[in-house]
Structure formats: C-alpha cells, structure tokens
Design a protein around this nucleic acid. Structure first.
Lengths: 368, 368
DNA sequence: CTGTTAGCGCATTCAA
DNA sequence: TTGAATGCGCTAACAG
C-alpha cells in the first residue's frame, strides 16, 4: 500500500504538503502542486479511507436498508439513483438488511456504534414509525424517503423527508381522463390505511368532486380495494364493472393492479375502458396503459442534498444542535394544502434550488 | 465517543486487556473478563470500526453493484439475502452504482483504492466479462454470482463463482410436464446468446430429446424467442400456437414471458395449455402457473462462505497467493456434465458443506 | 495473565 | 508557503 509518505518522498516534499495538496490545494504553491500531482499519478496513490475517517471522525457514509420483499416496485431504481447521487458527492453507501422495524433498529445500533454511518435513509415510512424516535433520541442524522404520516412529525423540521406527491400524480391523471372525455372514472386502491395509498386515493376523489363528476355518496360505489397483485386487480376490476357497468375509466393505485384490470378487460372486449397505473413499470410499457413516473433521481438528489447539509452543519458548529426552525410549508392531508402545493418544488430543476427539509416532488404523467 | 481507554480506566485494567477481551477473550482471566464486560456495558462502549480497520488493514467489507435497471427480477431478493448473510458474518456491504461494465471498473478503482473493500460480488456476468481480468490483474478478491461464460474461466479456481443451475431447473420442469401427460411442449426463450438463456433452453431441449418427445428437426419449430416483457410473451405465444396448434404446454424462460403467454391464452380459452415460468415472482403467484424458485439464500450463503475463505486465507498466509488448484467438477455446456451434476450441491443443506469455489445450486420446482 | 511500547495513515495544530 | 510534532482508536508484539 502506497501512503502519503511515499508520495512525499517521491515528490521531495514533506507528508504534510501532500496532505495539504489533497485537502486544501489553494495553500500550496503551484509549482509544488504539480510536483505532488506527478508523484501521486506515478505511484497511483489514493488516500486510505479508514485513516482519514479515524482522523476526521467522519465517515462520509450513508446507510440504507433492504427488506426481504421490497415495499415498492421501484426500490431497485431508487437504490441506483441514490448510489449515483452519493457517488457524485463522494459518499459511500452501506446496505443493511431490515426484516422488520425492530430489526432495523437493531441494525441502527450496530451501525451507529462503529461510527461508520453519518446518516440513514429510511424508506417505507408508516404511521408512528418507531425508527424516528429512536434516531432522534440517539442523535443520529437521517432522512426519510416518504412522509412521516403521524401528524406531529410531518411539519417537524428535525424530521427531514423527501417524498413523491402521489396525490398530485393521481389528480393529474384523473384530470387528464376528464379532459379526454371520460365521464365515469373508477378507482382501485389498496386496503387498510397506508399513508401512501390514502394520499393517492384522495387525489382521485378530490378531482372528481371538484369537477362535479360524482357526489360524495357516489364515490364509495366507484372505488374498490385490492391487495397489490395482478389477480386481485383482475378481480377488483370485475367487481367494479358489475357495480358500475357504465365505467369508462379506472384509475389504479399501482401498475400491478392496472395490469390485472387490463387483463380482465381484454378477456371481455365489449367494454371500452381506459385503465391507468402508477410507477411506470415494465407492465405499463408492455400493455401500453398510461401511468405515473416517480421522479426517483430528483428524490435521490434532494435526499443527498439534505444529508450533505447535515454533514456540513455538524462540521461547522457543534452548537448547531438546535436546528433553526425552518418554517417549511405546512403539510397536511386536506385539499387546501394540496391546492397550495406549488410551494414545494415541482420538478427536479426547481427542487435543486430548495433548501427545505421537507420536499414533495410531483411525479410525471405518462400518457399512452 | 467512548474509547477503549475509558473502558480500561472504568474497569481498572489496561487498554490492552480490554482489547484482548474483545478479540481473544480466552486469554483473559474470568474475573477480569466480567469486570471488563461490566464496564463496557455501563459505558455503552462499541469499538470504532475505522480505527480497527486502520490497525488491522482489513475492512471486512464486501461491495456489490446496482444497475440502472436490475438485470434480474429477483435482484432485490438477492440483495436482501446477501445483506442477511453478511450481517451474520459481521461483514458490511457497500453498494455502488454500475451504469455499464466499464463504469463498474471505474468504481473498482475508487473502492479498492480507499482500501475499504475486501471482496466484490459481481452479478450479470457476460461472455468474456471485462471485469474479471481487471480484478485478477489488480489482485482484488471477488466472487461471481453467475458463471463466467467464457470457456477458459469456467474451471479456473482463481475465478470463484456461485450460480443457479437453470439447465437443471428447466429440465425438472419439462420432466414434470412429461410425467403429467403433456405430449407437445414448446419453449419461449430469450433472443441472442445470453449464457443464462442458452443454459435454460438446453434444459428443455435435452429433456425432450432424451424422452424422444421431439426430434432435432422438430425442436426449432417448437421454440421461439422474445424480449423479456409481457407483450413480447403474449406475441410469442400466439406465434407458437399458430405454428404448432397441438401444443399442450409451453415452458417459458421467465415469469414475465409466462405471464404474457397466460394472458394470450386467457383471451382465447379454446386451448388447454399449461404454461410455466421461472423466478417465482408475484406474477406466478397471481396467475397460478408453475415456476422455478431460485435458491437465493443458499447462493448468498455460498458467496459469503467463499469470501470468508478469501479473508481467512489472506490473514493466515501472504504467500498463499497461488491458490491450490482445487480440482472442481468440470463445468461445460454439454449434457454429460449436466448428467453428472450431482457432483455439485443440490440443496442448501448439502451445499453448505462444500468448500468448492464453483458452486452450482439446483432451484426448486414450484408446481401449482 | 497483564501492562508497556509502538505504529497503522492521515490531518490539524503550531513553528520556521 | 512548508515542515515538525501530536494524536484519532485500536491491536500486535513483546516484556513483566
């Protein structure tokens, strides 16, 4: 292994000059600089990451979990986006397994203990997520990919999050359907009360109500719940059609359900019904139904930006523990917020300029 | 941050004793041991990973890539399996992005340079994979998940690999179809010459020939190629049926293609045709077609076992660079090998006992 | 069995 | 601008 000393000897300078060259090139004379550069190049020197981390007490590493079965169909794309963004910022990514929320907390313990994680990226956030209080209590930096659905955390600047605005995405899709002449628009959603699922469903509901395409009473008959698999989508579509034979469009909460719905319609081609999905998976491309594309690259950029802020903050001042209560846009479930969603960045380009700790990104409509 | 010194002071012993307690508890007197244990517990001490790595010159870290679009539908499951196995062995996982083979080699450079990767896990192996010579040349340890399809590497003990025996899996499936009375069995495969695709197809072909269910000449008419998406599977199925109206079963190289085939058959329910897939994805579960389940956990175990061997070997003797040319079973494409496949482990349990550097695991048939 | 000494590779004081 | 010391936290040799 070639160290900073070898470079120094080869360049005829002291080790510290080499260190300066690496960390603060400005203070090194230009001629010396090229001397050092040549030596580094010749010996193929690279700084030892462990030594640097030991010395600086910073790992420049972010940790992210992988569940036994990905909670989202696009998780691999998200991982790639995060890895790309981290790469650009000279951050490393540690991947750890999460079999459950409590298992994940156990992972926190071992990872934070060794001191080689600076910040965690948490996916699959749930109501009253137990991971959040743990991390706060142990003063561990983190960023959520997904909103903390518990009310109290949503606006808390000490709980940073980046999420895709499923409400806006589904609303866009529903509007598009209305504007292309669809009169009777149903919805296939997820059962239970997942924050994500409810949010998307609300986008459909509010759009129909606003356009006076359905009354509050009619809404219930226009939607049905199904587990996230093709067979369930198939069945849900049949149920919906039986109940509402005059349907001319079905908005689905996911591509998987949409694929099932499309299949059930292909079998009985008497109907002419538009089906739409969510996630822009290969199913949507194959079947050719419209869908919604999550801006995963932008999400990754925002997440890494926030992490970078955390790192910089920790480096500059230790007394900065009380984060200046950044008055971010209020985030709630009601339509008033979503009407005012223009406060948060709407595209990757505008988002990059934000320095908020709560970022809601609007996904793109893919019309086929 | 609490260090080994604090523990030593609190326990009333020297720092070295604490270190011994951690790394070699056997040589510490029992009474001292409990003293140290108490101090560690009280102070909540955990060793600093960077310091340890700097001192021992070993990172206990394995690196694995993530592509923009996963080359396999089960890659997230594989990542979880690897993460779980690494966790059990106290190894960390670094995730890096790979946009192409050459991009991946660039990642190798930066990761190896910092000295915080001990071994790489390489997926998506291709014919004459450029990554392999690079790693060998730079003396970087690695394990392939997938065979090195270039002939020369396949038996080379310095190129360790773990793979799933797609040939055996498809052969099992085809045999099962024959034994359940199917007489005319087609195949939908991938175009081009991917090692994996060819291997699976050979399993179907050889089984039909061995059972004299088709002649060499007939085989061409019984199979068709399709890109790995649902629409292509749909189309391929129609093509096949037009050519061979008496088909009673179709073996597909993937669940995705199988889903497409099933759909095209649902549309015209005159046929009674069994369709089978590969990968045990949610599609297979939803549609209820038989499939083949990759033993990903076992793969991860074997991969980590080999990595552990590499680490142990490097620790014990530096002169061990010339690996004892372990005469592993010859691995080729012809049927003779596959007939003798019992040499390689056939299940997770038997595999665990192996110490070979070339492991071929037989997947499980899921009959529905 | 335990303590002392030394140094892994680097970056941050300071002095020159 | 550059060089000489110091120590981050830990472990591998030894000595006691």
């Amino acid at each position: 292994m070639v160290s900073i000393k070898d470079v120094a000897r080869s360049a005829g300078v002291s080790p510290q000059t080499v260190s300066n060259y690496l960390n603060n090139p400005g203070i090194v004379k230009a001629s010396t600089r090229s001397l050092v550069a040549a030596a580094i190049d010749e010996l193929g020197y690279t700084p030892n990451a462990s030594a640097r981390r030991l010395r600086t007490q910073r790992s420049n590493t972010i940790a992210i979990g992988i569940a036994p079965v990905s909670y989202s169909r696009v998780y691999d794309r998200f991982l790639h986006a995060i890895a790309t963004e981290a790469d650009a910022h000279n951050l490393r990514i540690i991947l750890y397994k999460t079999d459950s929320k409590s298992d994940e907390i156990r992972q926190f313990e071992s990872l934070t203990a060794g001191g080689d994680v600076d910040s965690f990226v948490l996916a699959d956030t749930v109501h009253n997520d137990p991971r959040i209080p743990w991390l706060i209590e142990h003063k561990q930096a983190f960023v959520l990919f997904g909103r903390p659905w518990g009310e109290s955390n949503m606006n808390d600047p000490t709980v940073p999050w980046v999420d895709v605005d499923g409400y806006a995405g589904i609303a866009l899709m529903t509007q598009k359907l209305i504007l292309t002449g669809h009169k009777r628009i149903g919805f296939i959603g997820w059962p239970g009360t997942s924050g994500t699922g409810d949010d998307r469903k609300a986008g459909w509901r509010d759009t129909l109500l606003a356009a006076k395409m359905a009354s509050e009473q009619q809404l219930d008959a226009l939607c049905v719940d199904a587990l996230d698999d093709i067979a369930a989508g198939h069945a849900a579509c049949l149920t919906l059609l039986e109940r509402q034979p005059d349907l001319d469009a079905i908005v689905c909460v996911s591509d998987t359900l949409a694929a099932g719905a499309v299949m059930s319609l292909t079998a009985s081609p008497t109907h002419n019904i538009t089906v739409t999905g969510f996630d822009n998976t290969v199913s949507s491309q194959s079947f050719g139904f419209p869908t919604i594309d999550q801006p995963l690259t932008a999400c990754a950029q925002e997440i890494v930006r926030i992490i970078q802020q955390q790192l910089d903050g920790a480096a500059s001042h230790a007394q900065c523990s009380a984060v200046p209560a950044q008055t971010s846009a209020p985030v709630t479930h009601d339509a008033s917020f979503h009407g005012a969603a223009t406060v948060s960045p709407h595209s990757a380009t505008t988002a990059a300029k934000s320095d908020s700790r709560h970022v809601l990104l609007t996904p793109a409509l893919i019309w086929r």
